[in-house]
Design a protein around this nucleic acid. Sequence first.
DNA 1: ATAAAAGTGGAACGGGCTTCCCGTTTTCCG
DNA 2: CGGAAAACGGGAAGCCCGTTCCACTTTTAT
Lengths: 237, 237
Amino acid sequence: MRSAADPENSAEQQSDQGLRADAERNRDRILCAARRLYAAEGLDVSMASVAREAGVGKATLSRRFPTRDDLITAVFTDRMDAYAGAVAVALADPDPWHGFAAYIQAVCAMQAADRGFATVLTMSFPTAKALEKRRAEAYHGFLELIARAKATGHLREDFADQDMIILLMANAGVVAATADAAPNAWRRLVGHMLRAYSTPGTELPPLEPPPTPTALYRAMIRLNRSTSAGDVGRPVS
Amino acid sequence: MRSAADPENSAEQQSDQGLRADAERNRDRILCAARRLYAAEGLDVSMASVAREAGVGKATLSRRFPTRDDLITAVFTDRMDAYAGAVAVALADPDPWHGFAAYIQAVCAMQAADRGFATVLTMSFPTAKALEKRRAEAYHGFLELIARAKATGHLREDFADQDMIILLMANAGVVAATADAAPNAWRRLVGHMLRAYSTPGTELPPLEPPPTPTALYRAMIRLNRSTSAGDVGRPVS
DNA sequence: ATAAAAGTGGAACGGGCTTCCCGTTTTCCG
DNA sequence: CGGAAAACGGGAAGCCCGTTCCACTTTTAT
């Protein structure tokens, strides 16, 4: 994983390229506010709210990030670093199946920790090179991880790399629906999925106990504002 | 399963209770339009769009269905009948495990066929007795189905009824994310889940082949307007 | 120190959604 | 068949969002 302030990539970030000191400060405040709001409420918070939360005028926000996608990509670039880094960690594990299982759990945990990121992982932003580069990097490593895990005989042969994306979409749905009310429900889903991916006799992490009925019931009610899961989407450009 | 026009339930439907002929006609046009829009775009279409689609004034819509939830419950009551009916079908199956698997596939298929319904199944509408009655009915039957399937030894003992709800949330996420672009991706998810729920050696329906990479890629881009998945939620009242 | 450049927030505009109200049309029943 | 009551549609008001313009302030460089 590399720092977000990597100086040799000039095209993808205008952070340092001659912004005045106060402008740079405001840019940071915006990013910080957006990070907070996206994590808590998902990707479809209004631009106006972000500006309000950041304590800057709407004009300033528009000037720095003309489109919603610009803001989203800027916010999540560093989290995509962690995403790509997780693959490297998994590949370093001496036991490929264990690395595979831990990787899936780690990525899904990132989704659970940040509602916006959960959605970002299931979307493509063709215009955002910074994001897509990291996604491709992670995917490449993941293919290698699959190959190694299959070679151990613990990962089923019929597992396809597409299954990972499907799992991310599924997990995004669970996270969006249960957030707060049943914050560990996603672990139960992932536990089941790992069982499905593995061959008989494979050692599996213990299955998370199911959420209590009342917790689930609260989750089904508190599906409050937007976004929500349905809120899985946003315009691309 | 009972007909939606059940005459003895008077409280839950003002369809016939003295509405003038033209009013009744407009009510039907609204329901029909809403059904179409909800199925195609999810639950968070604006009331104005529904009125426009139905070809009635916005006031008429408000008069007939004061809140969005009123409209949603009216639209989906009959589909909840089908939902409750599916349990009865499953219980009638001589092979409980087969009935269980078929039931899960059938319900998830309903979610895939109607984006709005996918969300409704993961939400509770405490004020909508008609909906909740059917939901409770279905759940009661489902518990019985679980018991029988476990007795055959094919359904794992650690399967919990909460897992069904989690699956519905997960499937809603997949459906919301892949609609149109990869319309069978959900079958792959369900296939994996059935594998996870079953004991070793159990006969399973064939696993759906994974969507092609390009189809999945299109799904990740075409996550167009709202709601979409993020749109997992709506105000309750 | 000072003037030009760069940046800022507020105001104003256009669009969409929702709710309420009122003049008009349709239905129903005697 | 005709009038009262019910239902209709559209328009006005209010709100929020996103965008653009503009007069004012801060920084920077000389």
